[in-house]
């Protein structure tokens, strides 16, 4: 990439921000690092758990238990945020099953979404989601894919004021409608924003991530592995030697460290069906993080493969 004045300024700002990287210093050895949610300074572990496709297992008792196993390993490794949506088929009741089986872990940070084009259908949908999870209230409710955001955001702010939800957010993915998202981030008092960002999809670096820092909005990163396409593509390819400097022992960990080392990122939410993978993902949140030069190196290396 050619260095223009603009990219130079952005890079300098990113370096300055990296120096102030708000990763919790009192993170215990082996425990995932934490970052503060800007609007409250509440700290949260920087790797969460997504549930799109992976947790949509219907009534299958064997697969439900497998999902509960993933959740157990997630909490045991120090994870907190689980993200879902009414769009994800049976994922919500499957989370509810896991929570019940695990004795309702107090560490849970529940991140849900409202996903309906009808304003009136929003509150009953959230209530239904709550019943599926079996929680008295959600920590975070996000407007899914910006659908009917003009109707849902005021309703969510009202719920927050009434204490029925702790945080309000909005989501998109795969680079869709970033202009509108930016406008919402500028004008609405949201606590969280969620979008796609990974080692190859870096569009968010230009505007969304700096804007989130500037506005004090927590960032949730979805599709950290491009829905598994990246981990599959890199499978069997040798990990560069320098990955060891970061304590990364797999491509998944290296790619997560790339995301997590961006100073504006609060939580990344990889989804998985496997206990070993969830452990691997959470341990990527501990140990050293790449600096700016190393981040470029990771991205360039993966792109070149």
């Amino acid at each position: 990439m050619r260095t223009t004045r603009r990219t130079f300024v952005q890079a300098s700002l990113a370096t300055a921000a990296a120096a102030l990287l708000p990763i919790s210093l009192h993170a215990q050895q082996g425990q995932p690092a934490r970052r503060p949610i800007p609007s409250t300074r509440e700290e949260i572990p920087i790797v969460g758990l997504g549930t799109w496709i992976t947790f949509n297992v219907g009534d299958d008792p064997v697969l439900r238990d497998e999902c509960a196993g993933v959740m157990a390993a997630f909490f045991a490794a120090g994870g907190r945020m689980i993200d879902s949506s009414p769009m994800y088929g049976s994922s919500q009741p499957v989370i509810g099953y896991g929570l019940q089986k695990l004795g309702r872990p107090s560490a849970l940070f529940s991140a849900e979404k409202v996903w309906t084009s009808s304003a009136a259908a929003g509150p009953p949908q959230i209530a239904q989601s709550r019943r599926f999870w079996g929680v008295p209230k959600f920590d975070l409710v996000q407007v899914h894919n910006l659908l009917a955001w003009k109707a849902h955001l005021p309703m969510l702010f009202q719920m927050k004021a009434a204490g029925a939800v702790r945080y309000v957010g909005i989501t998109t993915s795969e680079g869709r409608r970033h202009d509108l998202l930016e406008q919402i981030m500028r004008n609405e008092p949201i606590d969280f924003v969620q979008f796609s960002y990974n080692v190859v999809d870096r569009e968010a670096e230009a505007r969304l991530l700096p804007l989130a820092s500037e506005r004090g909005i927590a960032v949730i990163v979805n599709r950290p592995f491009r829905q598994g396409a990246l981990t599959q593509r890199l499978q069997g390819k040798p990990l560069p030697e320098w990955a060891a400097e970061l304590g990364a022992s797999s491509w998944a960990q290296l790619m997560l460290k790339f995301i997590l080392s961006h100073p504006a990122v609060t939580v990344a939410i990889p989804a998985t069906t496997r206990v070993d993978h969830v452990r691997e993902n959470l341990s990527a949140a501990a140990g050293p993080m790449p600096d700016r030069a190393m981040r470029q190196r990771i991205s360039a290396h993966v792109k070149a493969l």
């Binding site: 496709i53 219907g58 697969l63 769009m87 088929g89 084009s117 910006l146 659908l147 869709r176 409608r177």
Partner: peptide, 19 residues
């Protein structure tokens, strides 16, 4: 759904072959 043209068939696949 807004911007429906940006969605691909994969975006509507909610489950894995195993399930």
């Amino acid at each position: 759904m807004s911007e429906w043209w940006t969605y691909r068939a994969e975006d509507f696949l909610l489950f894995s072959p195993r399930v």
